[in-house]
Design a protein around this nucleic acid. Structure first.
Lengths: 154, 154
DNA sequence: TGCTGTTAGATGTCCATGCAACAACGTCTT
DNA sequence: AAGACGTTGTTGCATGGACATCTAACAGCA
């Protein structure tokens, strides 16, 4: 039982990390599967549409968007390619920086997002929030906020 | 600002889920990168070796192992292929079920694991545990335990 | 024994992703 | 004004994972 981790991590500390992994993977897979069967929309695509919908002018620079959806720049390029092919997103030039591109949510994209959103939210509720008590959500939010590198403000 | 989520999730609830995603992805990437540069060992490989080391007889059935490392069966087949090629793991037949196979940790695998473990544990500490207070670890463990489907016992 | 159905792993195929390299553009210095 | 340097986004390439499918082997029942 002590083959490893005599290096300063207690069994509990290691367990916490494993639980975090498991929770995130389990929820992610649930959402992915549900969105796919119900709306033929991968989770990553959903998250792009969601971020764009929340952004002012329904648009975001590629770089900015990549950070928000936790994807590499090249990964996002390909993903936006696909979404553009489906007509859910378009690319527009950036006025004040000729290198830059905006990914812009189209009306079709907004409609598709609206369809899928109930599935997404229901999944988060049933696979995550419902399993915690009310006060616990605030607690876990505070702790996860500390883990967030981008200075998690309240 | 309320383009979506009038469906019953508060902004905070949605934030919690996003923070969980971000935390897990950030830590995972850190570990992957560190293990790769320092030991040329992908995170998934490390986790396989780790699980085998903890298992009785340093061996686990393929199916069982796949569940523990959160991989599909085919994914694990390929991964064990690679580890076997490197000599870190071997396959052994199962006495009481001729269909079954054990993945077994070799001495070379154990050595490689021992080399990489400090890097792994240091990563978890610096990217995760150090960012939380002592009491918080127990708290978050309790909550994440509730999220774990496999009846998280204390 | 001979069927039927189920389970354990391995493979063929496809697709998403990351990294390194690149091109185009911006910024800063002098 | 001009070059050095950083940034932005796209591409070639390789990797790794999932799904569907396949084979072998078990279990149950007639």
């Amino acid at each position: 039982m002590t083959l490893l981790r005599d290096d300063g991590l207690t069994a509990e500390e290691l367990t916490v990390w494993r639980l975090l992994q498991r929770a995130q993977v389990r929820i992610t897979r649930h959402l992915e599967a549900e969105l796919l069967v119900a709306h033929d929309l991968p989770l990553a695509s959903y998250e792009v549409l969601m971020q764009l919908a929340e952004a002012p002018g329904r648009r975001l620079r590629m770089n900015d968007l990549a950070d928000r959806v936790l994807l590499s720049r090249s990964g996002l390029t390909r993903l936006i390619d696909r979404l553009q092919r489906e007509g859910l997103v378009s690319r527009e030039a950036c006025a004040d920086d000729a290198r830059g591109l905006f990914a812009v949510l189209t009306d079709a994209g907004a409609a598709r997002l609206a369809e899928a959103t109930p599935t997404y939210l229901r999944g988060i509720r049933s696979q995550f929030l419902d399993m915690l008590g009310g006060g616990e959500i605030a607690q876990i939010r505070a702790m996860l906020g500390k883990l967030d590198i981008s200075g998690g403000a309240p």
